[in-house]
Amino acid sequence: MDPHLTAAIALTTVPALVTLGYAGLCWVIPFKTCQRCAGTGQTTTRILRRPRACRRCDRGTRLRFGRRVFNHFHRLRSEATR
């Protein structure tokens, strides 16, 4: 085989596998833990350090970015085919 062909195959296969892996992860596990509250669902105030509900999440989990993109395109397609 030509070394250029081998390099081209490797350079196209690796990003495709990473993309498909992330898409599979978004399909199987659509939620991830919130980075702000570390999955507890509560943050503390700056002055008195009282616990408050996290503004970013409801229960300590957030929807992954890839899943939000998938839901957006799925909603667009379903509205267009009505």
Rank of each mutant, 00 (worst) to 15 (best):
L5A: 08
T61L: 13
V18S: 12
G39W: 00
S78K: 15
G39H: 00
F73Q: 11
L25K: 09
R56G: 15
R52T: 09
C26L: 03
L63Y: 00
T6F: 07
H4I: 13
R62D: 06
A16H: 05
T33A: 12
D2A: 02
V14Q: 09
C26S: 15
R62H: 02
L5K: 07
R75D: 04
D58T: 10
R56M: 04
T19W: 06
I9S: 05
D58Q: 13
H74D: 15
R46H: 11
L48M: 12
V28I: 15
P51F: 01
L25E: 05
G39D: 00
T44F: 13
L63V: 11
V18E: 14
T81Q: 14
H4G: 10
V18G: 09
G66E: 02
P15H: 03
R50F: 08
A23G: 09
R75G: 06
T45Y: 01
T13A: 13
V28T: 11
A16W: 07
C26Y: 06
R64C: 13
T19Q: 12
T43E: 06
I9N: 05
R46M: 14
R68K: 15
T12A: 15
A16V: 12
S78G: 00
R67E: 10
F73E: 10
V18M: 10
T61M: 07
K32A: 13
P51V: 02
L5P: 01
T45Q: 11
I29K: 14
R64Q: 15
T12H: 07
R62W: 00
R49F: 02
R77P: 00
L20V: 01
H74G: 04
P30E: 03
L20P: 01
F73H: 12
R46W: 10
L17T: 06
T81V: 05
F73Y: 15
Y22A: 11
R59F: 06
C34L: 06
T61C: 08
W27D: 05
I29R: 09
R68Y: 03
W27L: 14
T61P: 01
D2C: 09
A7D: 12
Y22V: 08
D58Y: 08
R56T: 05
A53D: 14
G21D: 04
R64H: 11
C37Y: 00
S78R: 13
R77G: 05
T19I: 13
L76A: 04
C57A: 04
A53V: 07
A23N: 06
R56Q: 09
I9H: 07
C57G: 03
A7H: 03
A8R: 03
E79N: 14
R59E: 12
T13E: 05
T19V: 10
N71I: 07
T43S: 03
L17C: 02
L5D: 07
I47K: 06
V14W: 02
R52F: 07
L63W: 05
A23S: 11
R82L: 10
R55V: 02
C54R: 03
D2F: 13
G41I: 02
R56E: 09
A10E: 07
C26V: 10
T19G: 11
R75A: 13
G21I: 00
